[in-house]
Design a protein around this nucleic acid. Structure first.
Length: 374
DNA sequence: AACGCGGGGAC
DNA sequence: GTCCCAGCGTT
């Protein structure tokens, strides 16, 4: 419609002026120098370490990542060390951090860096962007922070910061609004000190421009913020529509033969791909004889092994994305000593050797239970 | 555009 | 309990 261009909303979405941008950059960088946290990946300019940190930080909070980062780079100090490692060991280092696909892609990418770039992490944004597990955000973050190459970033913190700066009332999840925020990110990223600038944007979002109860009194750019001016900082950005959660019942079964326990390596098309696991499957029956029957049948279907009367050990409740899972854990003895299981996929393991295998959090909990109860 | 992916921090 | 987190890849 004809009035769209001059509506107040459109005005606030106009590209920032050069003057506004200059002032914003100066205030933000000044604040960052005084307030930035001492994080392990800020003590290095090694692109390999910056890269590891950025992958670990995908959808994962800083406090969670710190100990993992320290252990991981100690175990694999260089991209070559990572490329030469077994995926098994990479996943073992990653265990507990979640989104294990990140670790597998990181490992694959390390091999690409060694094979195609001679072990030197590429400096070109498009080359970086093509590596497995690296999208637009991560590529921009790595080249700006590691090489000080100007590149915009947009992630959870900066979506919030930018949305408030321009009083952006759309939900940033949709594609058009997200494009608009990328444009803004591109418009404000400086040519020099862009790594510090991008880090500063995220640090501001993390320490000051927080999701709830933003500390506008402590904000270095509140004078440039449209949401602060109009008092809307608590309404922006709009909360996401919540996906409906679904309750699921599963069973995990530890099959024991003599002193050893059965593990299976989860395949590439499954959740927890590459991790090892006990038998695990969805359950319909909740109790009684039907439950026992369903257990025995599914144990045979999944492993080919015949067992009798699995005994209940524990119940864990855990969440996987939108699923709320009730996991009942069982122990079952297998008398069948002849059955041949595919090597590489199936393994009989002594309880004390479980620690060498990468397991999911619930798998690890169950494993510890067994070792303790011995 | 919507979904799968995992676990935990903060309230 | 809730919501969300330095996202990416697939469909």
């Amino acid at each position: 419609m004809a009035t769209k261009r001059t509506s107040p909303r459109s005005q606030s979405l106009a590209p920032p002026t050069a003057e506004w941008t200059k002032s914003f950059q100066r205030q933000l960088l000044g604040w960052y120098r005084r307030h930035k946290r001492d994080l392990p990946w800020r003590r290095t300019s090694d692109p390999y370490r910056i890269w590891i940190s950025e992958i670990m930080l995908q959808q994962t909070q800083v406090a969670t990542v710190v100990p993992y980062f320290i252990r991981f780079v100690a175990a694999f100090p260089t991209v070559r060390a990572l490329a030469e490692a077994d995926e098994h060991d990479v996943l073992r280092q990653w265990e507990g951090l979640g989104y294990y696909r990140r670790a597998r892609q990181l490992h694959r990418a390390a091999r690409v860096v060694v094979d195609q770039f001679g072990g030197q992490f590429p400096r070109d944004l498009d080359c970086v962007r093509r590596l497995p597990g690296i999208g637009r955000y991560t590529a921009g973050a790595i080249v700006s922070i590691a090489f000080d190459t100007p590149a915009p970033i947009l992630e959870a913190n900066t979506v919030r910061v930018f949305s408030r700066l321009i009083a952006f009332r759309e939900s940033a999840a949709a594609s058009a609004p997200e494009q608009r925020l990328w444009q803004l990110a591109e418009a404000v990223v400086p040519r020099r000190h862009c790594g510090a600038f991008n880090s500063a944007l995220m640090e501001l979002g993390s320490l000051v421009c927080t999701r709830r109860a933003p500390r506008c009194q402590d904000c270095p750019v509140s004078g440039l913020c449209a949401a602060f001016r109009s008092g809307e900082q608590d309404q922006i950005p709009r909360p996401r529509r919540k996906p409906r959660t679904e309750a699921v019942n599963e069973a995990a079964v530890v099959v024991r033969r003599g002193a050893k326990l059965l593990l299976r390596r989860r395949t590439a098309d499954e959740r927890w791909a590459g991790l090892w696991d006990f038998l695990r499957f969805p359950m319909v029956a909740r109790r009684g004889a039907k439950l026992q029957k369903e257990l025995v049948e599914k144990i045979e279907r999944h492993s080919g092994l015949l067992v009798e009367s699995p005994s209940h050990i524990a119940t864990f409740k855990h969440g996987v994305t939108r699923f709320r899972i009730t996991l009942d854990c069982y122990l079952a003895e297998s008398a069948d000593s002849k059955r041949k299981l595919t090597a590489g996929t199936w393994k009989w393991v002594r309880p004390e050797d479980l620690e060498r295998f990468p397991l999911s959090v619930t798998g690890r909990k169950l494993g510890r239970l067994l070792v303790e109860s011995q």
